[in-house]
């Protein structure tokens, strides 16, 4: 069974939802404090949403100095799945594990609504179970979801197949309508929408399970542990 660590920073608030949703996807997940330097015997790690360290200075700016982040970076280097959801995505960009930055939403409103996203690439640990071009309905819940990078980075993201999900109706001003990106290898993924909130029939959508379920299917998970 695939085992993932879910890192809890002070201010993280989606960790239990993520653990439950991963459970629905057949993945065993354990909460790990951001103070830990070892994440345990796990195949990968998820940085859940919330407001790590109160989003002081910038979302993710302080969280990236947490002791657990060295272990997260080590897993990323090994090719193990490293997924940042919402605030976790912001942490991954601040930590330099993903390019770009997430700025305040263009309309200056906190957005909490379902959005439709298109799966652009299926070569990542989070989209291996999806079809290219597939549409997913996922909830967003963010104030800083406006993915921003320079023109050269955006061109490279597209050229290297690092754009994972795009919004059909861009809600926040993201460059390239980007909702999720990955590193070159496809094992580090940052996603603004919340797949864990679309992972149970009671929640109205199971689309998020296709994403989280992909984490169980990845062969690199087993080979890298």
């Amino acid at each position: 069974m695939t085992k993932l660590a879910v890192v809890v920073f002070p201010g993280t608030n989606c960790e239990h939802d993520v653990v439950m949703a991963l459970g629905n996807a057949g993945i065993e997940a354990t909460l790990v404090s951001h103070r830990e330097t070892h994440l345990g015997d796990v195949d990968g790690v998820v940085l859940p949403g919330g407001f790590a360290h109160g989003d002081y200075l910038r979302p993710g700016a302080i969280a990236r100095f947490s002791p657990a982040m060295d272990a997260v970076a080590a897993l990323a280097r090994e090719g193990a799945p490293v997924v940042g959801i919402c605030n976790g995505f912001q942490v991954l960009t601040e930590a330099g594990l993903l390019p770009g930055a997430l700025r305040r939403n263009e309309g200056l409103r906190f957005l909490c609504q379902p959005v439709r996203c298109r799966v652009v690439t299926t070569r990542t640990v989070l989209t291996a179970g999806c079809r290219a071009g597939e549409l997913l309905e996922l909830p967003i819940n963010h104030n800083e979801g406006n993915f921003t990078c320079d023109a050269e980075t955006l061109r490279r993201l597209a050229a290297e197949d690092q754009i994972v999900l795009t919004y059909l109706d861009n809600p926040n001003g993201s460059d390239g309508d980007i909702a999720a990106i990955c590193n070159k290898r496809g094992n580090v993924v940052g996603i603004m929408p919340h797949p864990e909130r679309a992972s149970d029939v009671l929640l109205g959508s199971l689309d998020g399970l296709k994403l989280l379920g992909s984490l169980a299917k990845n062969d690199r998970v087993a080979s890298s542990s």
Binding site: L57, R58, A61, T93, E94, P99, G100, A101, R103, T148, C149, D150
Partner: peptide, 8 residues
Amino acid sequence: RLLANPVI
């Protein structure tokens, strides 16, 4: 390294 994010 901390106070500003040079990307933005």
